[in-house]
Amino acid sequence: MTKKYTIRIRRYDPQTGKNWYDIHNIYAERRMTVLDALNQINEHERAGISYRSSCRMSICGSCGTIVNGKSVLMCNTFLKDLEDPVTIEPLRNFAIVKDLVVDTDAAMEKLRDALPYTTFSITKSRCESVQTPKQLEKIKQTSQCIKCMLCVSACPIYGLDYNFMGPAAAAIAYRYNKDSRDHVGEKRLDSLTGRNGVWKCNFVGECSNVCPKNVDPAGAIQKMKVMGVLHCIKSALKPKLKSKSKSKK
């Protein structure tokens, strides 16, 4: 059974600097995704719309756009769940390269500041690193992140201050800090609780609402804040503890 949908697509041409909305009417099956609809428009109407996609099964995280005002992955958003007309816009808080393609480099670079690796992987130890199911449980949710940057697009704080690390980097940092095989936690916390770290988060909470993998970056940031406070207290007490133990010696 097909139904008629009106699709509005925000276009941008970097050569001319023009910025407009394209309107296409398509007849689509209800189980079609927004990504399928775009493919169909490009195939049948030769519209030449640029967008990113790859896996078509919410794994690669490349097809993020704003559909009817909400940041979503196009490949897991079905037309039947959307109100007509369907408006597709590029992700917010990123510069638009062309049409729906945005430049996420800055946010990706911030993932680097989160030191996204365990110490086990950098010490050249050959032995196995054992992790119990219970330990895995702690990081299971946050390790589902596919770096789609929908959360960054939904974060108003990031939009107002591009120095903020953003929810994706924070969620990943949390994941590695909670990893039982990790020992650089202190160093990571230093960078995360710095000036552009988790303290800039005001807990709007929209990042967790849009995350397609239920990573809950907002919750991760709040937990990191608690960890940050404990870390500050610890590092403030540490020199004293050290000097005490020295004087005892």
Partner: peptide
Amino acid sequence: MKKLANTPAPDWWKEKPAYK
């Protein structure tokens, strides 16, 4: 190639219930 800035509108907080 020029890139287009895509910053939130001044009234972004009216957009979604969570922001409100």
